[in-house]
Simulated scan of single mutants.
Amino acid sequence: MTEDGGALPLTLQALHQLRQEILSCDLLPGATLSETAASQRLGLGKAPIRAALARLAEEGLVGSVARRGWVVSLITIRDIHEVFDLRLLLEPEGARRAAARTDPSARRQLEALLSAEAPPDSRALHQAIAVLSGNTRLAQGVSRLLDESSRMLAFAARHGTDLPEEPADRAALLQAVAEGRGVEAARLIYDRVWSLRSAVLAALTAPEAATPV
């Protein structure tokens, strides 16, 4: 549904639902995706399903395979290194830039996050800080990396890996940004991303893991 209560265009409905199934690993890496089966499961026509799969192929989440239709992209060790290495480059810089901003709009956004009854979840927190950096392309890049790493984390969890617990007080990171402590904010976000990277690599390089290198 859209914010005004209207229905999303059918292609966007299909795109949203299929992307969520892939990111949550309800559709596992390597799984075959039939347009007919997806159409029946989601209650949508084949045309929006086909268009959504083409969009997901552009995002690297599925691939087209001759005589097999569509296949959910595998997660490789190289993928893990590349995704988390980029997060380690972009997110600390985003936190430093967010902490350095003093314009009224950025301050209002920070105040809203800090005064919320419940702190944002981990993904929302990382995305919010990237947006607060003021660099639109950095925020867009982080958003895509968060999607890719969330699939890796979901896959690791299915291997029985105990992922690092969320910080007890996520507000500490936001407080560091709000108070202009950019070095501390960068360190906090770097440490969190590094711990997630280490956990995913440990899970998917274990002898019982079936993830290709």
Rank of each mutant, 00 (worst) to 15 (best):
A178F: 10
A124C: 10
G180E: 06
L44A: 02
E93P: 02
A209L: 06
D121Q: 08
S24L: 06
E111I: 04
D162W: 10
D121E: 10
E93L: 13
A130H: 10
A186E: 04
T76M: 06
R158N: 01
S195G: 05
H159Q: 11
T32E: 07
S64L: 09
L138W: 15
R101E: 02
A186P: 09
D85P: 00
E148L: 15
A37R: 13
Q13T: 12
E208A: 14
G5F: 02
L146N: 11
V62C: 07
V62T: 09
L56I: 00
R187L: 07
L89D: 15
G5I: 03
V213N: 09
L138D: 08
Q20A: 03
L114P: 01
S39V: 03
A47C: 03
A118K: 15
I80W: 01
A31H: 14
R107V: 15
T2C: 08
G5M: 11
R68P: 12
P104I: 04
L53P: 02
A172D: 15
A203S: 15
A171Q: 11
L90T: 01
S115C: 10
G43W: 02
A157E: 15
L90F: 14
L113I: 08
V131F: 02
G43E: 05
T211P: 04
S195K: 09
K46D: 02
E35D: 13
R170Y: 03
R187M: 01
A156Q: 12
I189D: 07
T11L: 11
A100I: 08
A202Q: 13
P207G: 09
Q140S: 10
A199Q: 14
R87S: 06
R55N: 15
A118L: 12
R55C: 11
R101P: 01
D4Q: 06
E117I: 02
G6H: 05
A124M: 09
E58P: 04
D121I: 00
D169G: 00
G6R: 13
S39D: 02
L204K: 04
L42R: 11
A14V: 04
E35N: 11
A154E: 03
K46I: 13
V193A: 12
A154M: 03
L146I: 08
A176V: 07
P92A: 05
D26S: 12
D85I: 01
L12R: 06
R50Y: 00
L42S: 01
P48T: 00
